[in-house]
Write a protein that binds this DNA or RNA. Structure first.
Length: 953
RNA sequence: GCGGAUAUGGCGUAAUUGGUAGCCGCGCUAGACUUAGGAUCUAGUGGCGAAAGCCGUAACGGUUCGAGUCCGUUUAUCCGCACCA
């Protein structure tokens, strides 16, 4: 009887469920292993075949580790807060909680059919109050901690206060502190807190009615929805992830991520070493510029009126011919001369009103304006004009630069455009200078020697950098510093469907809700759009005030700002809930703590994390930050959350086309007919009515009413469709739904086929055609065990040596393959093994039982069925992984390829112990060997035992 | 522009350490069984050639007895970043 997966797969899924086979406990004698998938956002569209790819790979690994004797944590949950459900709510009025619940149920149903070994008793949902209690709790901790640069980690804000009171902080005296009002103190501390409220230039997306983090904006458009984004100054919550920039860079050396992902992260953090230098103003102004980067402890107050710039090229300081401020620079107002005022103010206004997209689209266009003011080059005492231009960014460094047009392409373009002087200060060699006015591009390379540069003239660039830094340090006007491109993460969203902030406002300052009152539950609202006054949707909630005395949420009407205060109206972003979920899985039902110390001591961190590389900057950065913070405060026990990361590649769609005649819209021409290309237009056709690129004409006529009477020009009686690799999407009719495939071929076939497609990490097109081969393989496997009468034909006689060798080779290869995540080659090995055992007519348990055990991680249903048919009553999930018996693999001879001048000509069988002399003799004795030797003596013979014989003539 | 990755039959791929290029599967061809085949089985299948053989891993060059693999240059595709001073 053929393998009946429709009966067998649900049977074992039920067995696993009813026996709690995938339940895992913390502790026990076994070594631990944590295999994690990036949990999905349950979208309305359900899963397509691309989604389970990573889950299948991680499931194979988890099952393999379990069979190898590990206690494996392999949980799953849902990233259930997020924009799509809320957008849907705005359109339809359906509460996001309802649609989310529905989508989760659908996801679960789809996932269950594939036979994953998830421990569902540990499921988490980010929108569940029992879960987001801990998201809120972490926020409170972030609020109550600051980054102490001296100890290099997060410390309680109370420690900072005690240090201030003890007079141990250079930036403020204990006396100043004592004299502050409560609000002033809170305002002061806000500059330190790891979660802080500040006026920030944010990415405001009018289309979504919310601000977005940098990683949620691509090319000036929102990732979700593709709406334009503009810069706007708003009072927002942010997380001070920049405080961890260095540790986020350093940590990359300890983890196993792909080199490209590490590079992406390094790029995103954008560490660059350079110098901060203070340039005095030529015109005395009234106030002293406020030093930046207080929390980093880089306090450098300047006596005279001056401003700070950042440069990575301190060696070019003698080549500065102008200074540039960003349009947002606070000094512009003060320094601009009367004659220039109108023009400068007009420019600043223009620059500020440009959208991000406009600005990015016109990067190559040079714009700017002279302020009329001058700075003094501290090393040359030269007077240098100060310009304003939007090529200097407010968010990086200090928003001010020293421009060295000869050695920076952007400064060069600016200088050319405004005809500012260009002065060469670096040359390939001391006498290789030329007139920069003749240059068409700047000399940006960080190599060469300094020229026209005072005391550093003649030094190479590297030494000159150090010399200039030393000099400005001596002069007290600068220091070596490191800048990061990474920005703090904006943490507020003006949206409904997210975690509420456990924050209320008193005198305009935020205060946290006591930890033991968490969770602060998301209130119900009637309307998911912003309020008429522009408040976020939580502004519609009528019961959204905090009663400090009774420690509860109360009606807004009770707000008196004495004991009842308004609550925060924005909610947390999507990455809040996904930043620490892996820790919660360790101890998901704990009401007392995020997770117990015992649980995290046991599991440590994630050993293997599998997910898409699209989360390489967003989620991965936030999660690493979140974990590092929890590590600092003694919760997490590892600095890095994910020991090893595998990025599964995207599965692309394979679209099919029919060709409609340009003249006759009812006529469809087969692909390879002459004239088809010129006279037809391709139209996407549903891949479900195409098989092997042949169109099912009847189904096509039924597909859409307008095709009901379609006529066809066929080739060989068939309609051949065209195809193309595109993104898998509904609009291209190329979406493959896993449920349909499970229905037709079974879960094991789907699992094997997804792995068989190619390396997990590689992007590859989905092509349903190939699945038949895997399906045939499954049935062939079945036939080794079961005959046509559904009788088990496995016997207890010893297997012959050849079969034992086959199965042992398979054990060795598959074990090795799984360990290096090469699942496609494992499937290939299974096929080879089954082919060989079939042709050897092997039905011996000795060879077949190990086959069941090693295929179990890949195809658990058929494996479980066969395992039981072999007389076992435990689950195959616990069948110990077999060891390869190397003695069976030993050969007594080897078939040597014989090459002449590197070209393989024939093979000869030689004993394993054959020497070079014996090999050469054998070649000389061989008729083909004689032909190639042509009577000559070889000039050289290369003999590599068990590899090759190469004869040079 | 910068950074990273990739490039092998008609298609997905394999070759783990520099050692027989194309395993496994799809597709295709021929045959068997069959009332039938989109079932199953058998054989074949990189190109050219009757064969011997020649050519062949994006292109060119190099190192080597020997290169898909190492090095250099170029091209193409994908991904990331993109005025980050």
């Amino acid at each position: 009887m053929d393998y009946n997966f429709r009966e067998i797969e649900p049977k074992w899924q039920r067995f696993w469920r009813e026996n709690g086979v995938y339940r895992v406990d913390n502790g026990g004698g076994k070594p631990h292993f944590y295999v994690l998938d990036m949990f999905p956002y349950p979208s309305g569209a359900g899963l397509h075949v691309g989604h389970p790819l990573g889950y299948i790979a991680s499931d194979i690994f988890a099952r393999f580790k379990r069979q190898c004797g590990y206690n494996v944590l392999h949980p799953m949950g849902y990233d259930a807060y997020g924009l799509p459900a809320e957008q849907y709510a705005i359109q339809t009025g359906q509460h996001p909680a309802v649609t989310t619940e529905k989508n989760i149920a659908r996801y679960r149903e789809q996932l269950d059919k594939i036979g994953f070994s998830f421990d569902w008793s540990r499921e988490v949902r980010t929108c569940d109050p029992d879960y987001y209690k801990w998201t809120q709790w972490t926020f409170v901790q972030l609020f109550n901690h600051y980054y102490d640069s001296r100890s290099g980690k997060a410390m309680p804000i109370n420690y900072l206060i005690s240090e201030i009171e003890a007079g141990n902080r250079p930036e403020i005296s204990s006396r100043q502190w004592t004299n502050m009002t409560e609000t002033e103190r809170q305002s002061f501390l806000m500059d330190y807190r790891l979660a802080y409220l500040a006026d920030t230039a944010v990415n405001w997306c009018p289309g979504l009615g919310t601000v977005l983090a940098n990683d949620e904006v691509v090319n000036g458009l929102s990732v979700r929805g593709g709406f334009p984004v503009e810069r706007k100054l708003m009072r927002q919550w942010s997380l001070r992830i920049t405080a961890y920039a260095q540790r986020l860079v350093d940590g990359l050396d300890e983890v196993e991520y792909s080199e490209s992902l590490k590079e992406i992260q390094r790029n995103w953090i954008g560490r660059s070493e350079g110098a901060a230098v203070w340039f005095p103003l030529d015109v005395p102004a009234t106030t002293v510029d406020k030093p930046t980067a207080l929390y980093m402890g880089q306090v450098n107050p300047q006596p005279s009126d001056s401003f700070e710039i950042f440069t990575t090229r301190p060696d070019t300081i003698f080549g500065v011919t102008f200074m540039v401020l960003c349009p947002e620079h606070e000094m512009i107002e003060r320094i601009t001369t009367a004659e220039c005022r109108d023009e400068v103010m007009a420019y600043v206004a223009w620059a500020k009103n440009r959208s991000e997209r406009e600005r990015q689209a016109e990067v190559k266009k040079v714009s700017g304006v002279f302020t009329g003011a001058y700075a003094i080059n501290p090393l040359t005492e030269e007077k240098i004009p100060i310009w304003v231009s939007d090529y200097v960014l407010a968010g990086y460094g200090t928003g001010a630069i020293m421009a060295v047009p000869a050695h920076d392409s952007r400064d060069f373009a600016f200088a050319k455009h405004f005809q500012l002087p260009i002065r060469q200060v670096v040359a390939p060699s001391i006498d290789a200078t030329s007139d920069p006015e003749t240059w068409t591009e700047s000399l940006d390379a960080k190599t060469g020697v300094c020229v026209n540069s005072g005391f550093i003239s003649g030094m190479n660039v590297k030494d000159a950098m150090k010399a200039v830094i030393t000099k400005v340090e001596e002069m007290g006007i600068g220091h070596k510093t490191i800048n990061y491109r990474l920005r703090d993460a904006i943490f507020s969203r003006q949206r409904y469907w997210g975690e509420p902030f456990p924050i209320y406002y008193k005198d305009g300052m935020p205060y946290t809700i006591p930890e033991d009152c968490l969770p602060l539950c998301l209130p119900d609202v009637k309307d998911f759009k912003p309020t008429s006054t522009g408040e976020p949707p939580l502004g519609h909630a009528t019961r959204w005030a905090w009663d400090v005395e009774n420690r509860q949420v109360v009606d807004n009407s009770l707000i008196d700002n004495k004991s009842v205060f308004p609550l925060e109206l924005s909610t947390m972003p999507g990455f809040a809930g996904s930043s620490g979920y892996y820790l919660r899985y360790m101890d998901p039902h704990n009401d007392e703590r995020y997770f117990s110390h015992q649980a995290v001591e046991y599991w440590q961190n994630v050993d293997l994390y599998v997910g898409g590389s699209e989360h390489g900057t967003g989620h991965m950065m936030y999660a690493r930050f979140w974990n590092k913070f929890l590590f600092d405060i003694g919760y997490a026990v590892k600095d890095e959350p994910f020991r090893k990361l595998i990025n599964q590649g995207m599965i692309q769609g394979r679209s099919n086309f029919v060709y409609r005649s340009k003249e006759d819209s009812n006529l469809f021409v087969s692909k390879n007919l002459p004239g088809r290309e010129e006279n037809t237009v391709p139209i996407h056709v549903d891949i479900n009515i195409v098989d092997n690129d042949l169109l099912d004409i009847e189904k096509f006529r039924q597909w859409r009413p307008e095709f009901a009477n379609a006529r066809f020009e066929l080739e060989d009686g068939k309609y051949v469709c065209g195809w193309e690799i595109e993104k898998m999407s509904k609009s291209m009719y190329n979406v493959q739904n896993p449920d349909d495939l499970v229905e037709r071929y079974g879960a094991d076939t789907l699992r094997l086929y997804e792995m068989f497609l190619g390396p997990v990490e590689q992007a590859k097109p989905w092509d349903t055609n190939g699945i038949e081969g895997v399906f045939r393989f499954i049935r062939k496997l079945w036939k080794l065990f079961v005959d046509d009468g559904d009788k088990c034909i496995v016997n207890d006689e010893p297997a012959d040596r050849k079969c034992l060798k086959t199965i042992n080779q398979a054990i060795k290869k598959v074990t090795d393959d799984i360990e290096r995540f090469s699942f496609n080659t494992s499937v290939s090995t299974f096929m080879i093994t089954v082919n060989e055992l079939t042709s050897a007519k092997c039905h011996s348990r000795q060879a077949l039982e190990p086959m069941v055990v090693i295929i179990a991680p890949f195809a658990p249903h058929i494996a479980e069925e066969l395992w039981h048919r072999l007389g076992n009553d435990t689950t195959v999930c616990d069948a110990p992984w077999p060891k390869c018996d190397e003695t069976l693999l030993v050969e007594d001879s080897f078939s040597y390829p014989v090459s002449f001048n590197g070209k393989m000509r024939f093979t000869i069988e030689l004993p394993i112990a054959a020497t070079q002399e014996e090999a050469l003799a054998a070649v000389k004795a061989h008729s083909v060997g004689q032909k190639w030797l042509d009577g000559k003596e070889p000039r050289k013979v290369i003999f590599v035992p068990k590899k090759i014989i190469n004869i040079v003539i």
